[in-house]
Computed example of a mutant assay.
Amino acid sequence: MGFWKKVDEEIKFSGTITRKTIAAETGINIQTINRAIERDSKIYVEEAFKVAKVFGKPVEYFLEGQFIENSLSDKTKDETNSQLYLYSKHQKLISACESLSENDYRAVNLLASTLAQKIPSYANTNYFTGK
């Protein structure tokens, strides 16, 4: 997976960053961004750093997938890409947990494990909205 495909994935996961946001914050033309994502084009180093900054991530994060795609077995690629997907999806939760004390972290972990075991369809309920 190239740089721009990784950017496209991050846009989907962020919920707040759009292609328009990237264009506004980097000075890269929106049509250029659209074409680059569609074609998974190469990127100039300067632009790569600007785009990574929009997401608050190191540029290596967006280039990591290229290494994974080219140098690992198919099974390892799938597992690694799955882990990267999960990390991207749950990055805010992971960051929040990193700042907890050890006892608080254990409590959150226990709560999450308990919810996952007792209520398998928990994610499909409207528990928080009361509907």
Rank of each mutant, 00 (worst) to 15 (best):
I30F: 07
I22H: 06
K77A: 07
F55I: 05
K92T: 09
Q66P: 00
G65K: 06
T18A: 12
G65Y: 14
F13H: 11
S95K: 14
S99P: 00
I30G: 00
E69P: 01
E64I: 05
I94E: 02
A96N: 03
S88T: 07
G15T: 03
K53A: 15
L84I: 12
N29P: 01
E79I: 09
F13D: 06
V45Y: 10
R19H: 02
F49S: 08
T16D: 13
D40F: 14
F62L: 12
V7N: 06
Y87W: 08
I30D: 05
L93C: 01
G27T: 04
T26S: 09
Q83E: 07
T80G: 02
P58K: 12
W4G: 08
I43A: 14
Y85A: 06
Y105D: 00
L93N: 05
Y105T: 01
N70P: 00
I68F: 12
E10K: 14
H90P: 00
L84F: 11
R19T: 05
S73E: 10
A96K: 12
T16M: 07
E38G: 10
I11P: 09
T32C: 04
T18E: 10
E79P: 00
W4Q: 08
R35F: 12
G56W: 08
P58S: 13
S88C: 04
Y105Q: 02
G56C: 06
I33Q: 05
S95Q: 13
Y85K: 10
L86V: 01
E102Y: 01
